[in-house]
């Protein structure tokens, strides 16, 4: 197990600049780098693996700077997006490759490969070639190959993005189970917010070339620090308000907020935090969409659009008798004042 730290990393490739002031991955932690394509999450992973050298800054494993250590001495297991299984080797040979490089005896190699195949549920596939396996099976072989060398750190680069939805969900559960079982520090790269929320201890949300916020999934979801994070995870509402003494004013109406800030600001809340009540701010209903068991309302508060999402059975009125104006309320604990 290893603690990974990135300090003052600067990496420039053509027009693209990646800057990470500080990122820490704790021992045994499952951290996900989440961001849109082209944001630099894979590059960050490659810097940690040692395939790319940062122009500035340090990569630190357990308080030791590893910038100059080549990939083959870092003891890091990697699973690539396209698996990168060696097409000319059988499943057994693929998995034993790293063990052979480490000079294990034949018996030990056999024992360890057997263990790894059992771990990923592929016993009996030893003599197949990668092209004879399904995408999901190839993925498991790649995982077994990365884990059999007992790496201190596991790096997963969008490992599930080439699989269809059902297999993806099952495999991500398995990856999580194996990670727990082996207590291995893991860094996972994905652009899929649902995947990130489901699997991670903590998530680092990245925008182009930098990390926006690091935190636990719920913290990021309900307490985003920036507009980017708020918009990237799920549906979000952002209102421009004027804050005066813990009251956020929209025209003549106000929402109570827990903040010490004053003056013009942006506040954020999730659609499910919008409550329909008897008292509160009047909002014009400009449209709605029915979802299974739920309703999504498009509302307007003095020129600004917001979305509210409620269970159908919570509505104080019939859907067919939708009033033109309803009153809404948002609890202060559900509102975040953005930076």
């Amino acid at each position: 197990m290893v603690k990974v730290e990135l300090r003052n990393i600067l990496w420039i490739q053509g027009d693209f600049k990646l800057e990470i002031n500080r990122l820490e991955v704790k021992e045994g932690e499952f951290l996900t780098l989440l961001g849109p394509s082209g944001c630099g999450k894979t590059s960050t992973l490659r810097i940690i693996a040692g395939f790319e050298k940062p122009d500035k800054g340090e990569v630190i494993f357990n308080d030791k700077v590893v910038n100059e250590i080549p990939p083959y001495e870092r003891n890091v297991g990697i699973v690539f997006q396209d698996y990168a299984l060696f097409p000319h080797m059988t499943v057994f040979k693929n998995i034993s490759f790293g063990l052979e490089m480490r000079g294990f005896s034949k018996e030990e190699i056999k024992r360890k490969v057997k263990w790894a195949l059992e771990l990923v549920g592929l016993s009996g596939f030893e003599n197949r070639y990668p092209e004879q396996l399904s995408g999901g099976q190839q993925q498991r072989v790649a995982l077994a190959r990365a884990l059999v060398i007992e790496p201190e750190l596991l790096l997963l680069d969008e490992p599930l993005s080439n699989l269809d939805a059902k297999i993806r969900e099952r495999l991500r559960g398995e990856i999580k189970r194996i990670q727990r079982e082996l207590k291995i520090t893991t860094i996972y790269v994905t652009h899929d917010q649902e995947e990130a929320m489901a699997i991670s201890d903590r998530i680092a949300v990245m925008s182009i070339g930098r990390i926006e916020q690091v935190g636990e999934p719920l913290e990021l979801y309900y307490k985003p620090k920036t507009e980017f994070v708020a918009k990237f995870l799920g549906l979000s509402n952002i209102l421009e308000v004027e804050i005066k003494g813990k009251k956020a004013f929209v025209d003549d109406y106000f929402l109570k907020v827990e903040t010490t800030r004053e003056g013009k600001a942006k506040i954020f809340f999730r659609p499910e935090s919008v409550l329909i009540s008897k008292e509160g701010i009047p909002a014009k209903v400009i449209g709605y969409e029915l979802l299974p068991g739920r309703i999504r309302l498009k509302l307007e508060i003095s020129g600004q659009e917001i979305i509210a999402e409620r269970f159908l059975n919570e509505l104080p009125f019939e859907v067919h008798a939708m009033p033109d104006v309803i009153k809404i309320e948002i609890l202060p604990k559900d509102i975040t004042v953005l930076k």
Binding site: A49, F51, Y72, N75, I78, A84, M101, R145, A146
Partner: peptide
């Protein structure tokens, strides 16, 4: 790169 990460 996969081979390098496996220690080759």
């Amino acid at each position: 790169e996969a081979a390098l990460s496996l220690g080759a």
